[in-house]
Design a protein around this nucleic acid. Structure first.
Lengths: 253, 253
DNA sequence: CGCCTGTTTGATCCCCATCAAAAATAGTGG
DNA sequence: CCACTATTTTTGATGGGGATCAAACAGGCG
C-alpha cells in the first residue's frame, strides 16, 4: 500500500494518523461532493463517517494507491485527480479495467476478497479519501442510510459494467469510442460551450484502447476517422469536441 | 412479476402469503444449501431471514420470474432449476447477460434501481426463494454477518463479471467456450468419472452464443472443432466432456 | 542531443460476422 | 402416432473489421 502524506497540501491538508477530529473542509472542498457516500447523511452521522476517514496523497502520476495482492483494507473516494485500475491479462500483458474520476469509489471490485485484484494507479496528481472497509461496514449497521447508499453504489457498478462491457462487445470500434467520449463528457468536460468543448486526457491512448478492448493502432485509426468526419479534434493529451451533439446523439452508448 | 404457486410440489412445498412459520425443510431440501445467504447464520438469525422469505414456483421453461421494468422488489435464490437474464441490445435483439443455477442470487444487477433491468426467464422447471430487498436490508442492519455476506456476494459478482467478460474480449471463440464449459463443470457436472463427465444443457446454443458474445454459427463451428479434437461430444441438449483435464487446464479461464 | 515511450501510418492477414441454405429438432393438431 | 410447420442447429461460401507486423514520427526527460 503506497501512501504519501506530504508535499504541497494547500487544498485539503491531509492529516496524519493522530489527528482525530478531521475538519469539515475535507468535505466542503472535496471534488467528490455530490456523489460521495456521505451525501444525504445527517450531521451526527457525518461525524461517524468522518472519524473513520483519512485523506491520502497527493499521489503523483504513475504512483500506486494500492497493488494487486495487497491486503484488501479500504475503499478510496477520489477527491481530485484520476485513477486507473489494471490487471495482468492471461497473456501477461496489462489490461485496463476501469477509470475513476473525482467522486468515484475505487476498491469496490475487491470487496469480499482478501487481496486487491487490481493495481490502482494515479493518472495525475490525485488526492483520495480512505475508507477502511471494516469500519465502514460497522458504521453501516448503525446508519441504515449509509448501508443503503453503499448497496446502491454496488448495484450501479454492476449495471454500468454490464451496460458498457457486455453490450460493448457488439459495438464497432467507433461506437465504443463514442461511448467512451460520452462518458468523459459527463464526467470531465471543461469549457463546454453549447456544442463544443474539450477534455484533457489524464490517461494514455494505449490505456483507452485497452479499456475499450482495442489495439492502440485501431484506436488511433478510429480517432483519426472521427477527426476527418469533423466530430473531434484529436491531440496528444487532449480531445476537442467539435460536435457534441453527434457524440451524444449516437443511439445507445 | 410472474409467479405461480401450484402444480406438483412434492419437494419444497411453497407457502402462500399467510403461512408465517416457514418450515426448515425449506432449507434442508434446498439446492442452494452451502451457498445461500443463510449460510453461517446462527439459529436465531436464521429465524429472521426465514420470516421474510417465500418459495415461488415452480416456473416452467420460458416463464418469467420478473420482467424488465417490473418494480424492483426482491432478490431470488435459485433452489432448483436454472435461469437466464437478458436485455434488449441497442439493435433491438435480445442479449443474454447471465445464467444462474442452484444457489445463485438473481436480481443483484438491479439493486439501487427502481426497476429490474432484465428479464429473468426460467430455463427449466425452477423453484426460487424470494427475498424482499427492503426486508433483507433492514435485517442486515441487525445481523452484521448477513450484511457482510451480502456485500461479499456483490463484490464477487463484480469480480466475476470483470474476469469473464472483460478478459473474455481478448479471448478467441474457442477459449471463451472453454471458459464457459469450465464454469459449467464447477456448477452442474453430473456423473463425473475422473476425466469424463457430461452436462445437460438447460439453455439453447443460441443463448450460450449470445452470452459469449458470438453468433450461433460461430459457436456451432467452435463446438464442432472441439468435438473433432476429441475434447467434447456435442449433442443437442447435452455436452459430454471426453477430456476434462484439457478443459480445466486451458490457462486462465 | 539522444534515448525511450507513446502515437500514427501503412500493408497484410485472420477470425469471426454475415448471408444463404440444408439438416435436425421441437412443437402442433389431426 | 404421424404429417406438417416452426425453430434451432449445422454446414458452406464470402467478406470485413480489427489484429498483427513493421516502420516512421512525435514527445518527454535524462
Amino acid at each position: 500500500m503506497t501512501s504519501e502524506i506530504d508535499e504541497e497540501n494547500q487544498v485539503l491538508s491531509p492529516q496524519g494518523e493522530s489527528s482525530e477530529d478531521q475538519s469539515e473542509q475535507d468535505c466542503s472542498e472535496c471534488g467528490a461532493k455530490g456523489r460521495c457516500l456521505r451525501e444525504g447523511l445527517g450531521e451526527e452521522q457525518m461525524q461517524g463517517l468522518r472519524k473513520i476517514t483519512r485523506t491520502l496523497g497527493p499521489f503523483k502520476p504513475g504512483e500506486n494507491i494500492f497493488r494487486v495482492e495487497d491486503k484488501f483494507k479500504s475503499l478510496f473516494v477520489i477527491q481530485s485527480g484520476a485513477v486507473k485500475i489494471e490487471t495482468a491479462s492471461f497473456e501477461g500483458t496489462k489490461l485496463v479495467d476501469g477509470f475513476f474520476f473525482r467522486g468515484d469509489l475505487v476498491g469496490l471490485e475487491s470487496i469480499g476478497a482478501h487481496q486487491y485484484g487490481h493495481d490502482a494507479i494515479a493518472l495525475e496528481r490525485t488526492l483520495v479519501c480512505e475508507l477502511p472497509f471494516d469500519h465502514l461496514e460497522s458504521l453501516c449497521s448503525f446508519v441504515p442510510r449509509l448501508q443503503r447508499k453503499l448497496m446502491i453504489i454496488l448495484g450501479q457498478k454492476i449495471r454500468y459494467t454490464n451496460d458498457t462491457i457486455v453490450h460493448g462487445r457488439y459495438m464497432s470500434a467507433e461506437k465504443r469510442l463514442l461511448s467512451f467520449l460520452q462518458m468523459l463528457c459527463e464526467k470531465k468536460i471543461i469549457e463546454k460551450s453549447d456544442n463544443t468543448g474539450s477534455v484533457q486526457l489524464p490517461m494514455s491512448k494505449g490505456d483507452i484502447a485497452s479499456y475499450l478492448g482495442l489495439r492502440p493502432e485501431s484506436l488511433s485509426r478510429t480517432l483519426t476517422k472521427l477527426q476527418n468526419d469533423g466530430i473531434i479534434r484529436n491531440q496528444t493529451k487532449k480531445i476537442e469536441f467539435l460536435d457534441i451533439k453527434a457524440i451524444l446523439q449516437q443511439v445507445c452508448g
